[in-house]
């Protein structure tokens, strides 16, 4: 559908409410605007673009007043500006805006600015089109890993980016730990390592070790002895 890529082709549109509602629904559907997720805490935009919704938007000032109909001399006609306002309102609703703010915002925007709010429209603004692609999930992988100068004492050699490598590992860590069946963060603690014999090592929390009283040490010793004689390895040998 031609209008799906460039709404400007509908610049000459004029129609009655039913004609406008039908066109707006088709365009919104083609542009995927009615599939936008509502922002957290906001209700869904509504069931779709109906004549009732359009009348409501006009009464709230989201859509400009209707154009006068030369045949009847009264209002009731909708044009290209109304189409832009309606589609842009759907975008902003999905971004979490209330209708009264949308109405206020639209009063300061011309047609070109409204057009820029609507995804999928050629804007002549490469930065905007890039930002939109990035919001929707950019299919392009990173083009290069970049080149960086060396650390002070390092031997001269071509470097990959160590900062990026660390950032990537840290980002991956929570998911990897969960996949291993643990929590999403590594727990670390300072310990004192006591090598009782070459084949027996005891690790003690550093702070607790510092505060350990002889009586506590005595109890720990007895607990260790009890654990050793009743451990699974000992039982299995029996």
């Amino acid at each position: 559908m031609g209008f799906a890529t460039d709404l400007r082709t509908l610049g000459g549109f004029r129609g009655t409410l039913p004609e406008f509602a039908q066109l707006a629904s088709r365009v919104a559907d083609a542009l995927g605007l009615d599939r936008l997720r509502p922002a957290r805490g906001r209700p869904p935009a509504d069931e779709g673009i109906s004549e009732r919704v359009i009348r409501d938007y006009v009464s709230r000032g989201v859509l400009s007043p209707t154009l006068s109909n030369p045949e009847t001399g009264r209002g009731g006609l909708y044009g290209f500006r109304h189409l832009l306002e309606l589609l842009a309102a759907r975008v902003l609703l999905a971004d979490g805006w209330p209708l009264d703010l949308i109405a206020e915002h639209f009063r300061n925007l011309d047609d070109e600015e409204l057009l820029q709010l609507i995804p999928g429209q050629p804007t002549g603004n490469p930065a905007l089109e890039l930002a939109r692609r990035l919001r929707q999930g950019d299919p392009d992988p990173p083009r290069s890993r970049g080149r960086f100068s060396i650390a002070f004492s390092r031997d001269p050699e071509p470097l990959t980016d160590p900062l990026m490598a660390r950032a990537r590992l840290r980002a991956e860590l929570p998911a990897l730990l969960v996949a291993l069946g643990g929590e999403d963060d590594v727990r670390t603690r300072d310990v004192v390592c006591l090598e009782i014999t070459p084949w027996l090592t005891v690790l003690v929390d550093r702070e607790r070790h510092r505060q350990l009283s002889p009586a506590q040490a005595e109890r720990i010793g007895r607990a260790v002895a009890a654990a050793l004689v009743s451990s699974p390895a000992e039982r299995s040998r029996k």
């Binding site: 930065a127 992988p141 990537r168 980002a171 929570p174």
Partner: peptide, 25 residues
């Protein structure tokens, strides 16, 4: 916090920042 929803790969995020900077932002 750490990015934990959507795109979280630092290489991708940095590359996107680089491209936006080249485009003017």
């Amino acid at each position: 916090g750490c990015a934990n929803v959507g795109e979280t790969d630092p290489t991708v995020l940095a590359d996107q920042c680089r491209r936006m900077a080249a485009a003017g932002v």
